[in-house]
Simulated assay, not measured.
Amino acid sequence: MKNFLFVTLRIWKYKFLSNCKKVLGNPAVYHPLLLKGNGKISFGKNVQIGVIDSPNYYSHYTYLEARNNESEINIGNNVSINNAFSAVAFSKITIEDNVLIGVNCSIIDNDGHSLQPDKRNDDQPKTASVTIEENVFLGDNVTILKGVTIGKNSVIGNGSIVTKSIPDNSIAAGNPARVIRNL
Score class of each variant (00 low, 15 high):
residue 157 G to K: 07
residue 27 P to C: 12
residue 107 I to F: 14
residue 174 G to H: 02
residue 90 F to R: 09
residue 5 L to Y: 15
residue 32 P to T: 07
residue 40 K to G: 02
residue 173 A to R: 11
residue 91 S to I: 04
residue 147 G to N: 07
residue 125 P to M: 04
residue 172 A to N: 02
residue 122 D to F: 09
residue 98 N to P: 01
residue 49 I to V: 15
residue 83 N to T: 04
residue 94 T to W: 02
residue 70 E to P: 00
residue 22 K to D: 12
residue 21 K to W: 05
residue 97 D to K: 08
residue 176 P to E: 06
residue 22 K to P: 00
residue 118 D to K: 12
residue 46 N to L: 10
residue 30 Y to D: 06
residue 116 Q to W: 03
residue 60 H to Q: 14
residue 14 Y to W: 15
residue 32 P to N: 11
residue 6 F to G: 07
residue 161 I to Y: 05
residue 143 T to L: 08
residue 9 L to I: 12
residue 114 S to M: 04
residue 99 V to M: 01
residue 123 D to W: 02
residue 74 N to Q: 14
residue 35 L to I: 11
residue 84 A to N: 15
residue 139 G to Y: 07
residue 102 G to Q: 05
residue 15 K to W: 13
residue 18 S to L: 09
residue 173 A to T: 15
residue 103 V to W: 07
residue 132 I to P: 03
residue 157 G to R: 03
residue 125 P to H: 01
residue 134 E to V: 01
residue 113 H to C: 02
residue 47 V to Y: 08
residue 46 N to W: 07
residue 45 K to C: 10
residue 17 L to I: 05
residue 166 I to K: 01
residue 102 G to A: 05
residue 143 T to V: 12
residue 157 G to W: 05
residue 142 V to Q: 06
residue 131 T to Y: 00
residue 6 F to D: 02
residue 176 P to M: 06
residue 44 G to D: 11
residue 2 K to G: 03
residue 41 I to V: 11
residue 93 I to F: 07
residue 155 V to H: 04
residue 91 S to G: 02
residue 66 A to S: 11
residue 24 L to Y: 13
residue 92 K to C: 09
residue 27 P to V: 02
residue 79 V to D: 08
residue 96 E to S: 12
residue 128 A to S: 13
residue 102 G to F: 02
residue 103 V to N: 10
residue 106 S to Y: 14
residue 149 T to I: 06
residue 148 V to Q: 07
residue 37 G to L: 09
residue 61 Y to A: 07
residue 24 L to C: 06
residue 99 V to S: 03
residue 147 G to Y: 05
residue 11 I to V: 13
residue 8 T to Q: 15
residue 168 D to R: 00
residue 13 K to E: 09
residue 121 N to V: 05
residue 61 Y to E: 09
residue 78 N to T: 01
